[in-house]
Amino acid sequence: MEQSTGQKIATALVGWGLSLLMAFPILWMALAAFKTESQAIASPPIFFFAPTLENFAAVFERANYPHFFLNSVVVAGGSTLLALIIGLPAAYAMAFYPTKRTKDVLVWMLSTKMMPAVGVLVPIYLMFRSAGLIDTRSGLVFMYTLMNLPIVVWMLFTFFKDVPKEILEAALLDGARPVQQFWMLLLPLTAPGIASTGLLAVILAWNEAFWSINLSTSNATPLTAFIASFSSPEGLFWAKLSAASLLAIGPILAFGWMTQKQLVRGLTFGAVK
């Protein structure tokens, strides 16, 4: 299909225009992170300035930032690892040794995701309180593991389903036992899929805000809840807020970009591939 030059330029302009519009708030925030506080609140806005790193230094000094960052890493990483350890065997069993009930089990697992968090806020809060889990990392790890487990199982299931049956049968014919087959053949074959599953779980746990705000107060507070504490002081700390935010979303943006293709599969439970 031949396109005129005008059409080509229009297509590029629309595509880039929409994308930049979507990214603008974050780009603008990233810019503010390198401004001084007075530059950040200046009106008319300042587009060109000598960048400064003082906001990042201030964030690290004052807010105990590394502590919150570490909480996010531990909580997101720990819950993902746990969900993978628990979910992998189940996904494997359902993908390769399906029974009549497998479909029902999968659909049921999915339906546990449909419970709105706020509907069970009260019992979870009370249970956490009596178990001494409020404001602990292990409490949040536990919550996020349960939150991500259905997605992890589903995503792994669809990746395992994509493995050609013939390869596995050939391995069994060669005398490999199911356990060997799993470790030597299946894991290497599906490693990219397992990795994207893990990345998606990390992203979801890292950005989770409802439980982190309601179940942590200071010790276990991850970055989402820490950033929420910036909501009270109006105005004056925009540059520092931007710097703290940029540090908080940086790693996850990188992960998100890496996993964008598999993301669709995970978030739609395999309904769109």
């Binding site: 929409l18 979507m22 974050i26 603008w28 925030m29 950033i227 935010s245 979303i249 998100g256 964008q260």
Partner: peptide, 18 residues
């Protein structure tokens, strides 16, 4: 495309405050 999907990966508290 990468630019367009940025907002989805930003934690809700950061989005709201920005």
């Amino acid at each position: 495309r990468l630019f367009c999907i940025i907002p989805f990966f930003v934690m809700p508290t950061v989005s709201a405050l920005v």
